[in-house]
Amino acid sequence: MFRNNYDNDSVTFSPQGRIFQVEYAQEAVKQGSVVVGLVSKTHVVLTAVKRNAEELSSYQKKIVGVDDHLGVALAGLASDARVLSNFMKQQSLASKLSYGRPIPVERVVNMIGDRAQSSTQHYGKRPYGVGLLVGGVDDLGPHLFEFSPSGLTQEMLACAIGARSQMARTYLERHLDKFADCSREELIKHGLLALKESLAQDKELTVDNTSLAVIGVGSKEGKRRVENFKMYDGQEVGPLLEANVETSGTGEGEGDAMETDS
């Protein structure tokens, strides 16, 4: 139809009741490289494929630790993700300072959802161009939330966003019933295998382009203990990749073709 008339700003509805600017922002998410998240009864795992702009440049960081019990994986405009994750860090700190307890995951996710929604309803602002997978643990156990530029946040059992993420989602749907009872290692294995599904034909998971994060909850001496956010990056990913993913060689990460952002 007349898409170009109704897509100039996010304060215009199309005749069908759609907001095109928000839908375009969701396209930015699809341009980013894939990230996968999944949750069991005790752990939540986030995995990501990193991209570099050129052969010699560093790889864009895709997973950010927000607090001991919270982490996010991003796909899309990394700078927008930085703004959101900084806000989450502040809110987590405030909760610890005021109440002495880590912020419930649902609360912090609702906060960023509301911020994102506000940028879709007021002129002069643009929607956030990033999708996030928020993984965290609290009194209810481990959680995984998907955040999208429209401000919609949903709790998931497993999720994948970014380029070619449909392949990962298919893998996750196929194995969905197994996740709840997975051990930490099995969950990591599924996370890496789902990630692998989304890679382009000639690409592989290497220590340079893969990153992984785990947060867990367990009990020690009857007390509920949080297994703090732990990120595996660079060489640390090596053993995990060898154990879980068959690779033809280790170590040499080949940069992807030049792509914008991550």
């Binding site: 109440y99 649902e106 209810l140």
Partner: peptide, 8 residues
């Protein structure tokens, strides 16, 4: 919050 298990 959606669950009362979170309460302070």
């Amino acid at each position: 919050l959606s669950s009362s298990e979170h309460s302070l």
